[in-house]
């Protein structure tokens, strides 16, 4: 599982992996749902990656505290990226 990929889940839903972070040995992804034409939608979510053997599973983070924390991490990364771009301008 890596960034800038389209993943299709068993539920037939497709997501675009926008960002990732590893926290406490767990990988989390920021992902946006894609429509049937694989166009971005307004629906985004945070997934937790689980691996069993060769299989990957994505579980939506529903616990408030975890979601808040991971959301903070992604937001901070984004702010840093924006700041960095600003410096480069």
């Amino acid at each position: 599982m890596k960034l800038d990929t389209v993943v299709e889940l068993e539920s037939n839903k497709k997501y675009y992996i926008l960002d990732e972070t590893i926290q406490n040995d767990k990988k989390y992804f920021l992902a946006t749902k894609l429509d049937e034409n694989e166009e971005m939608t307004a629906e985004s979510t945070i997934f937790e990656e689980n691996k069993v053997g060769e299989d990957f599973f994505l579980k939506e983070v529903t616990d408030d505290k975890t979601a808040r924390y991971i959301l903070s991490v992604f937001t901070t990364t984004l702010i840093n990226e924006i700041e960095d771009e600003k410096k480069e301008d």
Binding site: M1, V7, E10
Partner: peptide, 14 residues
């Protein structure tokens, strides 16, 4: 507990 199984992964086209 594991979530939804990933059945395919491909490079982003757009």
């Amino acid at each position: 507990n594991l979530g939804n199984k990933v059945i395919s992964v491909k490079e982003g086209q757009n």
